[in-house]
């Protein structure tokens, strides 16, 4: 099977280019296996990867125009030639490795930790199964970056718009019955950019490898903001 892979080594190249590789495909092969095959033939080929089962979030890449996690993308679902590029809109460090600093900054900006003002009980803070169910579809995020780097609003304003990942995380804490910083969290999202640059294009929903829905989370935040304002 023919693969076209984006290559860029800042020490020797002035701009990225596509390089062709032929990979022998076996049944059950994932895209990551194919990238590893390429690396077996050319050790200078660089990409991030680790767990191989879609939980560490290291190996997000752009495949035939769509952001995916390489380790859980079956080759059989891809059309030939398979074009593999780094995430769009991020500075390229080398080959498929991009600089995700801004993505992590946006994550940190939403204060992604549980805030409690009450004294902690001796045992667990109680939470009903129904309250806990509200975190399903939110806490499973693996910070792979597929969503935010597929979002046009994030491409244009990565320094101002939080992007779908960070907003999903913001809602994960707003939705947690144990969290006591609702007002501060909502106040921090005020203004025309951080939250409101989402134009519900929904690329984030299409690409999320964990099947999460940041657009819906953003909608929930907007509703809550409205409710708190009246």
């Amino acid at each position: 099977m023919k693969f076209l892979v984006s290559r860029f080594n800042p020490e020797s190249d002035t701009s990225p280019y596509m390089q062709e590789f032929e990979v022998e495909v076996v049944r059950g092969m994932m895209l990551r296996d194919a990238l590893l095959e390429i690396k077996r033939h050319d050790e200078s080929f660089a990409f991030r990867h680790s767990c191989g089962e879609g939980v560490c979030g290291s190996d997000g890449v752009n495949v035939n125009g769509t952001n995916k996690l390489a380790c859980i993308t079956p080759i059989s679902e891809l059309t030939e030639p398979v074009e593999v590029r780094p995430f769009p809109g991020r500075p390229i460090i080398r080959d498929l490795v991009v600089d995700m600093t801004q993505f992590y900054q946006q994550y940190r900006a939403v204060k992604p930790w549980l805030v409690r003002d009450d004294p902690m009980p001796e045992q667990e803070i109680l939470q009903s199964p129904e309250e806990r169910d509200k975190l399903d579809g939110l806490y499973e995020c693996i910070l792979c970056g597929c969503c935010s780097t597929a979002c046009p609003s994030f491409w244009w304003n990565p320094e101002k718009f939080h992007g779908p990942q960070a907003l999903l995380t913001a809602w994960r804490f707003l939705a947690d019955s144990r969290d006591q910083a609702t007002d501060e969290r909502l106040d921090a999202l005020e203004g025309p950019y951080k939250l409101f640059r989402c134009h519900t294009i929904m690329n984030c929903v299409d690409v999320c490898p964990k099947g999460l829905n940041p657009t819906k989370a953003i909608g929930h935040i907007k509703t809550l903001m409205l409710k708190n304002a009246v």
Partner: peptide, 17 residues
């Protein structure tokens, strides 16, 4: 318990534990 206080979203029983 400390983990739970730190925000870990443990699954819950009907009594909230």
């Amino acid at each position: 318990y400390e983990l739970e206080h730190n925000g870990v979203p443990f699954s819950r029983l009907d009594d909230g534990k």
